[in-house]
Design a binder for these strands. Sequence first.
DNA 1: GTCTGGCACTCACTGTGTCCGAGTGCCAAC
DNA 2: GTTGGCACTCGGACACAGTGAGTGCCAGAC
Lengths: 341, 341
Amino acid sequence: MLSERRLEVLRAIVQDYVGTEEPVGSKALTERHKLGVSPATVRNDMAVLEEEGFIAQPHTSAGRIPTDKGYRLFVDRLAGVKPLSSPERRAIQNFLDGAVDLDDVVGRTVRLLAQLTRQVAVVQYPSLTRSTVRHVELLSLAPARVMLVLITDTGRVEQRMIDCPAPFGDTSLADLRARLNSRVVGRRFADVPHLVQDLPESFEHEDRGTVSTVLSTLLETLVEETEERLVIGGTANLTRFAHDFPLTIRPVLEALEEHVVLLKLLGEAKESGGMGMTVRIGHENAHEGLNSTSVVAVGYGSGDEAVAKLGVVGPTRMDYPGTMGAVRAVARYVGQILAES
Amino acid sequence: MLSERRLEVLRAIVQDYVGTEEPVGSKALTERHKLGVSPATVRNDMAVLEEEGFIAQPHTSAGRIPTDKGYRLFVDRLAGVKPLSSPERRAIQNFLDGAVDLDDVVGRTVRLLAQLTRQVAVVQYPSLTRSTVRHVELLSLAPARVMLVLITDTGRVEQRMIDCPAPFGDTSLADLRARLNSRVVGRRFADVPHLVQDLPESFEHEDRGTVSTVLSTLLETLVEETEERLVIGGTANLTRFAHDFPLTIRPVLEALEEHVVLLKLLGEAKESGGMGMTVRIGHENAHEGLNSTSVVAVGYGSGDEAVAKLGVVGPTRMDYPGTMGAVRAVARYVGQILAES
DNA sequence: GTCTGGCACTCACTGTGTCCGAGTGCCAAC
DNA sequence: GTTGGCACTCGGACACAGTGAGTGCCAGAC
């Protein structure tokens, strides 16, 4: 186990390195922090920390920089979450309150988060799996053509075009619409399949094919669209540390465009339970392109349960307390906004 | 007026520079191109071209590179549009044919374009102004709450929540829905306002307020959502020339995030008429951040009229014929896909 | 007139060598 | 366990010379 002072040294190293972006030496450390010991002692502590793998030197005769493991320890045990200042809080609220619809909420959130953290922001659209159905609408566009519109409690709208196997009368359509809605409105997506299972049987024989087609399209929509959408912003912030890793920015941009990868990343974070905040540091990220970045993610939702995730992607050398504070605050306000609408 | 040979020299310079990314000298030029004259002659021509502002030297005793004006001349008079190979065409078609809905079409298009041109792709969602109404749906969510869903002929769906001034019966709602649709289905958005103008008058007095609210929301949707959405992809391609301008990539990324700017850019291109291709080179782009990039844009649409634009953003030093060929081809196929659906 | 070969000149780029200093590891003393 | 001292390392900055691609100009050839 590391002594209290060594942890203190590690914390100081992380803080200085995050601030200056330069390897930090023993002398500078003692000068900038009130450690109460001499540089020589710090050097000894550093030697231990390095042996344990928490810090490393880029080359001999240079200062130390934290390793992924060092950041991990810092995040887990040494740093709290820095709460935002009240002007910041107010700014968040004002900015988000102006949103007019879900797209706008998500769009504003991503811009806000990017600006606040000065990093790349990622916001996932509210998930369909945990949502409930607000309304299902069926529109007859042509005798054998129906449009299915699905509206969720989070305000999300999905539509699908359906080619019916047989012409479908307006009255039958209205009938189906009514019965469908009476069964599924207010229910969770996950529950829908068995709620509509027996619906075709109650229809006239000639309509059953169409009803089945409509239902299977509905179920498909529920499942397929669980493949979530997400929005990304603030990529320009990547250039802030590009001078460090000009070769790193490309794989990061590529990774950011692969929404599937990001969704998986956020998804994994989800396992850590509910609305909890997750920090994945450097190589903890499965995707290779993100090995030199950290991902701070947190769930948000209108109730006590998370419906989706949002977060930021930045260099491992980031201000973790501040970033975590901003991410958490934004998630809370977004949750509030969603609950209101 | 420049002689034929001097134009030929300019063309050669552009081609070589685009290929090698290095200033091109007189000797190299004569070696790589069959100009039939000696380097000395080429030097004289270069001196003239430089005086006219078509080329420049980064520093004394270096080769020449084309200026924006040089590229302009190249694009206008020296280069054609390079048609795609038939395997490429097939690949495009196959890739786009797999799309299931409008979002998917746009998403695939942007990926395709980015991959094909190895540049940043920008695709605008089909504009609402030139679209026609396929269907208007009104859903009663609560006694005094109505959802308006607008479906366009391009498959786009817009929805709006409406709080009614007074409770609105289901029969009235069905009535309004029917009358509204009979008037506007198949009509252009631009024509909708005067088509529904007198609609409130035909309703009972107590419903008029609600009808007016619904109509004004509809009109708002038509107008507001002309503020188009767009999708961007392939930003990782920016790093291909980042070693050249590491300081340039940031403003470009910033500009790309300002969708408003991009829309304006595409919009200006629109003036050049219908489906025509526009190439804006370097400083021809109003936005400062894009002063060292070129934008190749073209309209696409299901009919003979453009409903939106798509294009790419890349370094001024780009392969114009190839890029233009790819952009045009993609636009055509997208138009076809939209026409089919 | 136009093109060509020759020639002197420019200047970015590269590699080498030197110097500097921040930072280290080790050790003896407290 | 802590401290001051000391020799050592090594990357970064600076200076400098050599190289070569490229230029502009000019006198002569076609």
